[in-house]
């Protein structure tokens, strides 16, 4: 039989060994992982504005080509930081932790949000990054708006752990293709966001169709998460949009 002392020694040694292996692996691989995450974010931003063929290799270059301004706004809609030079992946707007800022918003603290301005074929496109919660974990994305800050150009969505075939379908082209052309303000200029609703959008009157898309079947909670995410994030930009006139 093994003595208690042996068991303690064994467990202690095992824990130290495993902790060393795992933490050194995490530290060694961190720069590579962070680079991948930044590239993924750029690809998502570019693809929301309809720029095709962005690969991991040319993402940084294309991002710096297309993006003309990286803006940081505060909760009153004032611009507090702009960045127009090269190396936009190091700008303050790119590095803002959206999760933190949205948490600040939810507890009524002051917060700041990023806004990316692109120029594509002579048109200005404004990209707003999104973040919310799905069924199993966070969902996120980017929404691209025309220069009027009203009409949607395109969207991208991502998620950490939604169910494949169900909630994960928010990433599918079928879901995303519904967004271009939708409006986030109504005719009176009031903010209405874009809703994700069940039961077939085409059955509703035109006024409803302008502000809503079909939910993913079998992915109700994820769809509701996308709905809430759009509303929560977009409404934070309303003061800024209204100040611009």
């Amino acid at each position: 039989m093994y003595s208690n002392a042996y068991i303690f020694r064994y467990a202690g040694l095992m824990v130290i060994l495993v902790a060393t292996i795992l933490s050194s692996a995490a530290m060694l691989l961190k720069p590579l992982q962070e680079r991948n995450e930044a590239i993924d974010k750029m690809q998502s931003i570019l693809s929301a504005s309809g720029i095709q063929n962005v690969t991991a290799d040319n993402a940084i270059e294309l991002f710096n080509d297309y993006v003309v301004n990286m803006i940081v706004i505060d909760d009153n809609g004032n611009v507090i930081n702009e960045f127009k030079g090269a190396g936009k992946e190091n700008s303050e707007a790119f590095k803002i932790n959206l999760k933190e800022q949205l948490y600040n918003k939810s507890v009524n603290r002051s917060f700041k949000l990023p806004l990316y301005v692109l120029e594509k074929d002579g048109e200005t496109i404004n990209i707003i990054p999104l973040r919310g919660v799905g069924l199993w974990g966070p969902v996120w994305g980017n929404i691209a708006l025309k220069s009027d800050f009203n009409t949607v150009v395109g969207v991208t969505f991502g998620h950490k752990s939604e169910t494949p075939g169900l909630g994960a379908e928010i990433e599918s082209p079928v879901f995303k293709e519904q967004f271009p052309g939708k409006k986030i303000f109504n005719d009176e200029g009031e903010f209405v966001s874009i809703g994700v609703i069940k039961g077939g959008v085409e059955k509703f009157p035109a006024e409803v169709q302008r502000h809503n898309v079909d939910a993913v079947s079998g992915g109700t909670i994820t769809s509701n998460g996308v709905n809430d995410m759009l509303k929560n994030v977009l409404e934070s930009y309303v003061p800024y949009i209204q100040k611009r006139g």
Binding site: I21, L22, A25, L29, L32, Q33, N36, I39, A56
Partner: peptide
Amino acid sequence: ILVDQVLKAFVY
């Protein structure tokens, strides 16, 4: 965890 870390670093 190791598999996950390696995948994240090399095949994102």
